[in-house]
Design a protein around this nucleic acid. Structure first.
Length: 547
DNA sequence: GTTGAGCGTT
């Protein structure tokens, strides 16, 4: 992890602040240490002048593409609250003043995930440790008076608000989320949530919680209903979540696969011009984020490329997912065979991982080095790539033509998800017969896992008509040389499906999160909108956000 | 007595 040295004022003793995996520094990270700060500047050694640090949407960007934050000591910029060089008669009506006031004004904050038992008093009591609480309310059912599990709180000081927003909150025994209402919310910058594929129906949330608790504190488990063969587990510690990604685990005799919970695909094109890749790839010339440095940090050639300027994502096509699929074409790697990639979804139960590729056979990862936490694990040999390893090497998923990904439109999958009115339709193209997980001759969880990596599950696998035919995905795989080594995966992922059938060249479904979604690591999707038109089928789309 | 994604009777 990269650290940035920051002091409050020039000459003060600096504090080291952790940068994000993409090299940026979160404003919230800065503000956690320097409440009220709004930016950074540093002394340019060459010009002796003070230079400002680029800031956009809550992120501060390192001055150099190549060397990142470098050895500079940065110091904070604070808003000049009403500090005016001359008091003129414009005083309180200038745009500047208004801007400052707007920026620093406290707002109501929504508190999500409250325990049912939390009262307004206990809510207030909890938050008073952060500062003066002007208002604390619990939203309740008008009839029963029962809490709806969320509430609002308002602070008297902006500092308190910022501190609250940049922390997590254990309120009355439950981890709660605090956000600015209707905002995308900063959320957890480093994903704490993992996608658990190949679940069977008899794996309940308690099973998941119990199992995964041995790696770290589990703060939430979510199993989509109706059963869709996958689930989500949220950890308190994002490092724990990250460290599990890419692994297979056996729960109740079932080999499940843990991977990054991909944020829901960005569906608006409004982000295409955005400049930075917030995903977990090697953007901005930095190493990707490997907690505790335990994963493959020594691959030559992995860093220094891919300034997240999205040149690679400039396809501008109709389908942002397709555009993203080319994310790593900059690496000029050999084309490799399909299926060389290390992501085997076929099971390999019991840890018999093949490292059947030439990419990053770094081996090891013995000892997770979780910083002394009780989550130290031993003997976890991963030959497999972590999902975000960038696939520099012979990765089978790189430098391929536009067929790298299924043409979602051709598959009858549109970017809006199925609406209740057309579910199971999409019959108007030769391939487009819809996608019914349950009708595929492979484990639906595999497809779910794959689509998760393309951020599609939530959007596309909703409202499936049980009668519809399947096969598109397979058509696509066949077309692309995907050998579909999972054909004999136990259909339905039933118990005992610890299927070792990955001996062949993978031909696997692409699982490279580094190419997913540039905009939103940790941020809610741009269209997360609470403004959605309400319930019904729409609901299920919204609920499918992975992060 | 149950629930666990959501955005507030202003």
């Amino acid at each position: 992890m990269d650290f940035v040295q920051v002091s409050e004022e020039e000459g003060d003793e600096p504090i080291e602040l952790p940068a994000e995996e993409d090299g940026t520094l979160l404003l919230s990270t800065l503000q956690a240490q320097f409440p009220g700060s709004c930016g950074l500047k540093y002394r340019n050694m060459d010009t002796k002048a003070v230079r400002g640090v680029r800031s956009n949407e809550g992120r501060l960007f390192p001055p150099s593409v190549d060397s990142g934050w470098g050895e500079y000591i940065y110091f904070c910029v604070f808003p000049k609250e009403n500090k005016r060089k001359s008091d003129d008669n414009l005083e309180n009506s200038t745009a500047k003043t208004k801007r400052i006031e707007t920026r620093l004004r406290c707002t109501d904050l929504i508190v999500l995930g409250l325990p049912w038992k939390t009262t307004e008093d206990s809510l207030r009591e909890y938050f008073e440790s952060y500062g003066e609480v002007l208002m604390a309310q619990i939203k309740k059912d008008v009839k029963s008076g029962q809490s709806k599990g969320f509430g609002f709180v308002r602070f008297g000081s902006y500092d308190a608000q910022m501190r609250v927003l940049s922390n997590r909150h254990l309120i009355d025994g439950r981890w709660c989320e605090v956000k600015v209402p209707n905002s995308k919310g900063v959320g957890h910058q480093v994903p704490c949530k993992v996608f658990v594929g190949r679940c069977t129906e008899d794996i309940n949330s308690d099973d998941l919680r119990e199992y995964f608790s041995k790696f770290g504190e589990v703060t939430d488990v979510f199993i989509p209903r109706p059963f869709r063969a996958f689930s989500f587990v949220t950890f308190f510690d994002p490092d724990v979540a990250q460290s599990l990604c890419g692994e297979d685990h056996i729960i109740k005799g079932v080999s499940v696969h843990v991977s990054n919970a991909a944020p829901k695909a960005e569906q608006s094109r409004s982000h295409q011009g955005q400049n930075y890749n917030y995903s977990s790839g090697n953007s901005y010339g930095m190493h990707s984020y490997h907690p505790q440095g335990n994963h493959m940090t020594s691959h030559p050639g992995r860093s220094g490329h891919h300034r997240g300027n999205n040149q690679h994502n400039a396809h501008g096509g109709e389908n942002p997912n397709i555009a993203n699929s080319h994310s790593h074409s900059h690496s000029n790697n050999a084309s490799g065979g399909y299926g060389m990639g290390g992501h085997n979804y076929g099971g390999n139960a019991g840890g018999g991982y093949h490292n059947n590729s030439s990419n990053h056979a770094s081996g090891g990862h013995i000892n997770r080095q979780d910083g002394g936490a009780p989550y130290n694990r031993q003997g976890n040999f991963h030959g497999m790539n972590q999902p975000h390893n960038g696939n520099v090497g012979s990765g089978g998923w790189m430098n391929r033509g536009p067929l790298d990904m299924p043409n979602l439109q051709a598959l009858g999958i549109n970017s809006q998800g199925s609406s209740s009115s057309n579910q199971g339709q999409n019959m108007n193209n030769p391939l487009g017969v819809g996608l019914n997980l349950n009708s595929l001759p492979i484990n639906p969880a595999l497809v779910a896992a794959a689509l998760n990596q393309w951020s599609l599950v939530g959007n596309q696998l909703q409202n499936q008509n049980q009668d519809q035919q399947g096969g598109n995905f397979l058509s696509w795989m066949a077309q692309n040389g995907g050998h579909n080594a999972n054909n004999n995966v136990n259909y339905g992922g039933r118990k005992g499906s610890n299927n070792p059938n990955n001996s062949g060249p993978g031909g696997m479904i692409k699982v490279d999160n580094s190419s997913c979604n540039d905009q939103q690591n940790g941020c809610a999707p741009g269209n997360a909108g609470w403004s959605n038109q309400s319930s019904g089928s729409q609901n299920s789309v919204e609920k499918s956000n992975f992060l």
